[in-house]
Computed example of a mutant assay.
Amino acid sequence: MSNFLTSTNHNPNKSIEVNQPPTDSVSSLSFSPKANFLVATSWDNQVRCWEVARNGVNVGTVPKASISHDHPVLCSTWKDDGTTVFSGGCDKQVKMYWDTRQPNPVHTQQLPERCYAMTVKHPLMVVGTADRNLIVYNLQNPQAEFKRIVSPLKYQTRCLAAFPDQQGFLVGSIEGRVGVHHLDDSQQGKNFTFKCHREGNEIYSVNSLNFHPIHHTFATAGSDGAFNFWDKDSKQRLKAMLRCNQPIPCSTFNNDGSIFAYSVCYDWSKGAENYNPATAKTYIFLHLPQESEVKGKPRIGATGRK
């Protein structure tokens, strides 16, 4: 039996616990691009916001606001000026913290299949749909598909993250694997995939991919209850963190990469029959990454002059 199933430690990495977490599983986490305000959406129909105050290694969290949807909330994101939060969910509504007075969307894009994941790093947008389609858009001309790619991974797309330089993207699947894909045809030789979030014969979903805003390394989080930091350029894992006793369904860096937020809770991947309300508690944690965990390293075996 794996340690994951027998472990009782929900916080083996001694992370900072966020006060007053949601009462059901967390579906998304997003930090304001301008300040340390963290938003979480949840299956309890709520969107919550906390202010994160940091003084050295001392971190405090204060609940600041919440809004309700009629059904579970699945995703959230901030406007780039940090003034507005958008959230969407099972009630087929997108909500904001303020009234735009504009009922019609600026643009609607028809997709070939159901949307499972999306990432935006303006002007690059990548949408992952069913049937392993990855559709790339240039948001300066959103009416036309820029490129359509079949996922380099054999199984269903779970998460996406655009490169900070907009030259490509990461894709994670339910099969414990990540693909690194460049958009330029001349860079295809740099594409590769790697396995992660596996323990022996147990294979877990990669649920979240987050680039560090300064070092441009990235984090993966999975249903095995672990999060790891990676460097795609040197193809190395920088740090493997200890596994929590429940899955990690979502995670995010703050705007300067000094705080990594992640949730620990049931992710519903094993269905309602494996949900045990007595043991399935919901947590949101804050990890303060050390530079050695998130700063890229030279490729192993590479030679160079100082």
Rank of each mutant, 00 (worst) to 15 (best):
F37Y: 15
P63H: 07
Y204E: 08
R158Q: 14
V106G: 06
A226L: 08
N3W: 12
L153T: 01
N274M: 14
S28D: 15
Q156D: 13
I16Y: 01
A162E: 02
Q102G: 02
D80L: 13
P142W: 01
L183R: 08
H212S: 03
L124G: 11
L153D: 00
L134S: 07
D233C: 09
S15C: 15
I135H: 00
L242Q: 14
A302V: 10
V52T: 09
Q109N: 03
Y283W: 13
Q290H: 11
G172M: 09
D81C: 05
V59N: 08
D99M: 09
N274L: 13
R198E: 12
H69M: 02
V94N: 01
K306E: 11
L183D: 03
S173L: 09
N245V: 02
E199T: 13
G89W: 04
A302I: 14
D267F: 10
T279R: 09
M241D: 02
S223F: 03
I259G: 04
S66R: 11
C115Y: 01
H69S: 04
I16H: 05
F37C: 04
P103K: 03
T220H: 11
V294I: 15
N138K: 03
Q109Y: 03
T77N: 13
W78L: 06
G89S: 08
F211R: 10
H71Q: 12
I67W: 15
L139P: 12
Y97T: 15
R114K: 11
H197E: 02
G172A: 06
A226N: 10
N210S: 15
S25A: 11
G179K: 12
F37S: 07
V178A: 02
W230D: 02
Q236R: 12
V264W: 03
S186F: 02
N276Y: 06
G60V: 13
V180N: 02
L183V: 03
H181K: 08
D231P: 07
F31S: 03
F4Q: 08
F37T: 13
